[in-house]
């Protein structure tokens, strides 16, 4: 028993790593494969979390809900609605270059946050939505956590295999062609805006899935949980640091960044009260700096995307330096 109890914290961290992996893989589909800068990951995460919460939570007077649907229906609904929200955004923005998408997705995330905070009858405003069902929630704490970890990890494995399969398929090659040379891809007869829209919507659905799993983990969702600092910007660092375009790299990125992030919280909690608060804001500096450093020194990430021709094109560079 004591041994299992000691595992409490690692299990907790591992569940979070799995949940954020969905966001990171979703972002990798958008950024790594299609080159789309979605700066509002938190928005799609929130849509997923709230949708699943509304579909599965028990009835509360004055708030939409009480459907009491099973977990699986909530998750499916979350993915569907996130995709539906992404659809019009993508339609409007993907005709232009990436910067417009960045600005608009920041706006979407903000708008969704304001909506979550003010629409009492749908989202329960600041109190949020409570008492969500949780798979294996009836077991004792440690076993319940372990079972949830196994469930989330299993879903993650399925998603990972599917995305890998898709990436190796002609669709994946086409997306990378569009990302690397839009004009050439267009000349080959590819419908660039439509394909980008596909990638954007698909990525958003995965983010919604992550949101739903997050909500069921804590059995509740509140507006504080959809903080863009973590759910958007930290996810970005995970993806770029790990290696955009490479799902295994992205998963490694999630693990590394989340462990650094929780460890830094552990450190700041040890500080005396008056410094602890400032150190908390200092961690945001760390996010920004990490983003800059990765862009500067490791733009392809720790595990760069595998490209068959890369070896040949690298050789002249090395001889140049020498």
């Amino acid at each position: 028993m004591g041994f299992l109890e000691a595992l409490n914290y690692p299990i907790y961290v591992a569940i979070f790593i799995c949940v954020y992996s969905f966001l990171a893989i979703g972002l990798n589909v958008q950024w790594g494969y299609a080159g789309l800068f979605n700066a509002g990951v938190a928005g799609f995460f929130a849509v997923g979390a709230y949708t699943s919460a509304i579909l599965t939570s028990p009835d509360v007077p004055g708030r939409l809900g009480g459907f009491g649907l099973p977990f699986i229906a909530g998750v499916a609904g979350a993915m569907l609605l996130s995709a539906l929200v992404a659809l019009p955004i993508g339609k409007i923005c993907l005709r232009f270059r990436g910067d417009y998408l960045a600005i608009v997705t920041i706006g979407v995330a903000e708008a969704i946050r304001i909506f979550a905070r003010s629409e009492e009858w749908i989202t329960g405003s600041s109190r949020g939505i409570q008492n969500l069902p949780r798979p294996f929630g009836d077991l004792p704490y440690v076993y319940s956590q372990l079972a949830y970890l196994a469930l989330v990890a299993a879903i993650l494995l399925v998603v990972y295999l599917l995305v890998e399969r898709q990436s190796a398929s002609p669709w994946g090659r086409m997306m990378r062609a569009i990302r690397d040379n839009e004009v050439a891809a267009m000349a080959m007869g590819k419908d660039v805006p439509f394909r980008r829209l596909q990638a954007f919507v698909f990525g958003a659905a995965l983010m919604g899935l992550g949101g739903a799993l997050y909500a069921h983990l804590g059995r509740s969702i509140t507006p504080e949980a959809i903080d863009p600092m973590i759910a958007s910007f930290l996810i970005w660092i995970m993806v770029i640091l790990g290696g955009s375009g490479n799902n295994r790299g992205v998963l490694a990125g999630v693990t590394i960044v989340w462990i650094i992030w929780t460890a830094s919280e552990f450190v700041t909690d040890q500080l005396p009260m008056e410094y602890a608060l400032q150190a908390k804001y200092g961690r945001i500096f760390l996010i920004g700096l990490m983003l800059q450093l990765v862009l500067r020194f490791r733009p392809n990430g720790i595990f760069p995307e595998f490209r068959p021709t890369q070896k040949d094109s690298r050789k002249p560079d090395k001889s140049d330096k020498a």
Partner: peptide, 27 residues
């Protein structure tokens, strides 16, 4: 150092700057 690369990377970098500046103000 990002001038010769796709501009979207610079946009991303400005986001990093935004977080750093905000954090300095907050600290």
């Amino acid at each position: 150092h990002l001038r010769k690369k796709p501009k979207i990377l610079t946009t991303m970098s400005t986001l990093g700057t935004a977080l750093m500046l905000r954090s300095i103000v907050q600290v």
